[in-house]
Design a protein around this nucleic acid. Structure first.
Length: 302
DNA sequence: TACCAGGTGGAGT
DNA sequence: ACTCCACATGGT
C-alpha cells in the first residue's frame, strides 16, 4: 500500500451518461461483479484498481451517488479522468428497449440493481481475463491476473511508486514461458494463453481488426483462438467491445433461465438462442442484470 | 472426500 | 450432431 502523498487529491467525476446515480450495491457489482477482475475494495465505499495503463481509486458518495477519483501523482489528472469517464460510461445502451414490461423477472432484476451498466474495457485485456476465467471463481481469476501483472507487467508511468502494475500486453505475454504462466496459477489455461499470444504475435493487426469487425465476424474470429468458445467470445465482445447483442451463457445464466424461466434441462446453446430472441438487441445488458441477481440470491441463501 | 468454479476441445457414439 | 469427460487449481 502506498502513502497518500503519492496520489493526486480526490477529484469529482462528471455524472455518468444515461444513468441513475449508483447505489453502493450497484457500484460494487459494476466494479467487482465479474465484468472486470482488477478492482479491490479499500473500504465501505472505495475501490482501487485499473484498466490498461490506468490506475485509480474510485469512491462513491452513498448519499448523492456522486463519484470521486484519485490517480497517482505522476499521472495526468485530466487524461486519467477522461479515460475513467469513458471506461465507466460503457457502450451506448437503452434500458427502456429491454422487455421489462412483459418480463416480470427481468423487471425485478433491474429494480434490484438500478443503473447497472456494461463497462468499456480494453479489448486485449478483456480477452486475457476471460480466457483465464474458465471454470474458475471470480476471486481466483483475480488472483491469477494479479500474479500475471505483478510478475510480468510493466510500471504504468515513469516514477509511479504505488507498486501497481498493468496486465502484460499480448506482445509481452508472447515472451513469457508457458511454465511461468502456469506458476501464476493458470493451470490448463496457460497453454491457451500461450497459444493466443503466439497467434497474435504472428499477426500483429489481428486483434484490432477483430475488435472493429461486425459482431458475427468478430465472434467467428475469436472462436479460432485456443481456449475461446461461445461463452468467452461473447464475454470479450460484450465487456471488451461494447457489443450489447452478445449474450454469454455461463453456469449462472443456465441456472437463472432454468429457475426463473422454466427452461429446465436446456443446454447452453439453446439458452443462448432463447436469450437473443427474448431479450433482443441488448441481450447482453439483460444478461448482466440476471447474472447479478442470481448471484445475489445465492449469497442470501448460503 | 467429493464436488464446484463466469468452459473448452477432443474422443467416442 | 450429440454426449462424455479430462484439463489444473483452489475453495467449501
Amino acid at each position: 500500500m502506498s502513502a497518500d502523498a503519492d496520489w493526486h487529491p480526490w477529484s469529482a467525476l462528471p455524472p455518468l451518461p444515461r444513468g441513475r446515480p449508483l447505489t453502493p450495491a450497484v457500484f460494487a457489482e459494476l466494479l467487482d461483479g465479474g465484468q472486470a477482475f482488477r478492482w479491490n475494495r479499500l473500504d465501505e465505499h472505495t475501490f482501487e484498481g485499473g484498466w490498461g495503463a490506468h490506475h485509480v481509486r474510485l469512491r462513491l458518495d452513498p448519499e448523492s451517488g456522486a463519484l470521486r477519483f484519485q490517480c497517482p501523482a505522476q499521472a495526468s489528472l485530466s487524461v486519467v479522468g477522461d479515460a475513467l469517464a469513458d471506461y465507466l460510461a460503457g457502450p451506448p445502451a437503452d434500458e427502456d428497449a429491454l422487455p421489462w414490461r412483459s418480463d416480470s423477472h427481468l423487471a425485478h432484476c433491474m429494480e434490484a440493481f438500478p443503473g447497472l451498466r456494461i463497462l468499456r474495457q480494453p479489448f486485449g485485456e478483456t480477452l486475457l481475463g476471460f480466457v483465464c476465467s474458465a471454470t474458475k471463481q471470480i476471486v481466483q481469476i483475480k488472483r491469477m491476473l494479479e500474479l500475471l501483472a505483478a510478475r510480468h507487467g510493466r510500471p504504468p508511468v515513469a516514477g509511479d511508486e504505488t507498486g501497481w502494475r498493468p496486465l502484460p500486453t499480448w506482445e509481452e505475454l508472447a515472451l513469457v514461458p508457458e511454465e511461468s504462466l502456469r506458476a501464476c496459477g493458470l493451470g490448463f489455461r496457460a497453454s491457451h494463453v500461450a497459444g493466443i499470444a503466439r497467434r497474435l504475435a504472428a499477426e500483429p493487426d489481428w486483434l484490432s481488426a477483430t475488435e472493429r469487425a461486425p459482431y458475427a465476424e468478430a465472434k467467428a474470429r475469436l472462436l479460432e483462438l485456443p481456449g475461446v468458445g461461445e461463452k468467452i467470445a461473447d464475454c470479450v465482445l460484450l465487456f471488451g467491445a461494447g457489443r450489447l447483442e452478445a449474450f454469454p451463457v455461463d453456469t449462472w445464466i443456465v441456472k437463472a433461465m432454468e429457475r426463473r424461466y422454466g427452461l429446465v434441462g436446456w443446454k447452453p446453446a439453446q439458452v443462448a438462442h432463447f436469450g437473443r430472441v427474448h431479450f433482443g438487441a441488448q441481450a447482453g445488458l439483460a444478461q448482466q442484470y440476471l447474472f447479478a441477481h442470481e448471484r445475489a440470491a445465492a449469497r442470501r441463501v448460503t
